[in-house]
Design a protein around this nucleic acid. Structure first.
Lengths: 362, 362
DNA sequence: CTGTTAGCGCCTTCAA
DNA sequence: TTGAAGGCGCTAACAG
């Protein structure tokens, strides 16, 4: 097995940097080729403190390039006790909410030389903990878990435990969601955003609201509903309890919920879908049923997914800086912490569009 | 990987599986605790051939669970000479085309116990090679590069070289794109799909076509244009050369190109945007200019991005099984190869919708 | 079937 | 500064 494969010790010119050789060149190949010790080669190719004589340094680098040397990641990771991996855990990477955030995370990570791995839960909150555990095994140096917390205490406890273990093992973690666990968290101000949205809507003359509310256990959905309710009341309108329907946080969820709403006799008013994807599904349902949109029924969403900015009528929503959130999560990760768990709040911005016409102006 | 987290083996209560201990427990801890050798522990926790006496096996597993043992990924990778990482390289993970495919890849990978890392090129083809090189350094066991090849020979050569090096080092690689490099490739039949689309359109009575063609160097865009051109001609229609405009492969690219088209006097006919995202941008431009859509100008796209299925008028397009493509890429990766580079072809399916009305039926 | 014994490739004290 | 030597945690021949 042991098969010293270093290229024929120079002599001539040829070999060039053809990296296509089986069994990759190692650091000792480089060391040998440049006539220095393994340690020096290591320091030259990647020594934290620069303490290698310039000419040697250059010589080693040249040899490395010439041989086509590439550090063996796992070996480095093992020696250092840590990889440069940032694990990202999301529910569904095909969902624009998550993929946009992921883009931000990837962007931030690549800038800092981190590799990002991605794990998906398929909307099963219990899998978050599993992924974090796996990431700990991989010796990832950081993890960011994006996704609404749920009201399932056991699941949350398990996640908290795994995150704690992850941090105890020397990694950094940040959650993007609600402020519910003792970890650095990037909190999206769902409640405030929804409240502002409701106020804006009442100012436009809307008074009677229905809500397509997402899964009952999802805190994100719940917060949006609560905020919206408060805002509506404050603005003189009201969310009709019988018109609050739950459904999946997806396009189909919104679609189905809207149909049920229509079936229940709803035919006039403004409906908030707790996210844009659901809102689009709701709009499709409205169209299918021949309802005048936005004349009879107005619709508002949440998130301001960019791919959805061109639907008609243009969707009123609360813009969340998704990509930026991803980038900030990475920053948070890398900042040195100064004590207890930090919380960074991100707020959304109400964007009024044609799907919720101004009733008082005509 | 082995995440045997069974509850503490009963018996006593005590230590529990608090994994919060600094300096993780290692395999030798487990071996010691269960009174077997390191090798046996290794085999029990994860020996390919099952050759450990049942009682010992159980004992080891119990100890592992009790101590909260998690294998050290990098160490395993180093010992084995390979990680269980599948590197995915895409242009932009926020783009639904890629994120949907990524979802498929992640799905397939997770099922097989592979971790997927994601690298993005930000539309710079040269970065594909860099990512593949990095992946080789990480000893990834597989890589899938998704994205159109370009006509830049140097860039392609570099990619070919890196992929070859990657494979030479023992990894498996597959490309999703055109059939242009000597590597296993999942070819998306863009030309055929576009041709079929054009034919279907001519059958609906459309004759005069404009094309928002994407970046000039992109093979995907080029193939779609070529196929469309051929199909139009075959159906008795024609793509007007002056009405073929290039633009980014993005929503804004389509938006801008459509404005230019309108500026150039175009006001009647059917326009093909070489992908759905561009088509949506084009539709927005049409709306902004008050053009009757689809009355005066009809629009067709390509991909059938699911998030875009609810735009109005509903977009005629060519459906590509994006998620499935991702899954199949993973399958291809894991199949044993039987010789030279294999090619798997995936075709799209024309989906006629309201954005391209049937002119002959009224 | 189990235990012993080498490394895997690199980083990092510890001397020189 | 540089070199020599030990070890990271695990797997994989080899014997027993």
């Amino acid at each position: 097995m042991t098969d010293t494969r270093s290229t024929p010790p120079a002599g001539g010119d040829a070999p060039a940097a053809t990296p296509d050789r089986r069994s990759p060149v190692t650091l000792s190949d480089v060391a040998r080729a440049s006539g220095v010790s393994l340690a020096t080669a290591s320091r030259a190719v990647n020594g934290s403190a620069r303490k290698v004589r310039p000419d040697l340094h250059a010589r080693v680098l040249a040899a490395a390039a010439q041989l086509g040397y590439t550090a063996n990641g796992p070996a480095q990771a093992m020696a250092r006790g840590r990889t440069s991996v940032l694990g990202l855990v999301v529910q569904d990477i095909a969902d624009p909410y998550f993929s946009t955030m992921a883009a931000g995370v990837v962007r931030g990570a690549e800038q800092r030389g981190l590799v990002v791995t991605i794990g998906t839960t398929g909307r099963d909150p219990a899998k978050e903990a599993q992924h974090v555990a796996a990431l700990r095994g991989q010796r990832a140096s950081a993890v960011v878990v994006v996704g609404s917390r749920t009201d399932d205490a056991a699941v949350q406890a398990r996640l908290a435990e795994e995150v704690a273990a992850f941090e105890a093992s020397g990694g950094r973690a940040v959650l993007v969601s609600q402020e519910s666990l003792p970890v650095d968290t990037l909190v999206v101000e769902n409640e405030q955003g929804a409240e502002a949205l409701a106020r804006a809507l009442t100012e436009r003359g809307h008074e009677r609201f229905a809500v397509l509310a997402g899964p009952p256990g999802l805190l994100t959905a719940r917060d949006r509903l609560a905020g919206f309710r408060a805002g509506a009341a404050a603005g003189g309108g009201r969310v009709v309890d019988d018109l609050v329907l739950h459904g999946d946080f997806t396009r189909d969820g919104g679609h189905a919920a809207m149909h049920r709403l229509l079936d229940a006799g709803f035919d006039r008013g403004c409906v908030l879908a707790v996210n844009d994807v659901m809102a689009v599904g709701a709009m499709a349902a409205l169209r299918e049923r021949g309802v005048d949109l936005p004349g009879a029924v107005a619709v508002a969403g949440f998130d301001d997914i960019s791919t959805l900015r061109d639907v008609t009528p243009a969707l009123t929503t609360v813009r969340l800086p998704l990509q930026e959130i991803g980038e900030r999560a990475v920053e948070l990760l890398l900042d040195e912490e100064g004590g207890g768990p930090r919380t960074v709040r991100v707020r959304g911005e109400v964007v009024l569009r044609a799907s919720t016409p101004d009733l008082r102006r005509g």
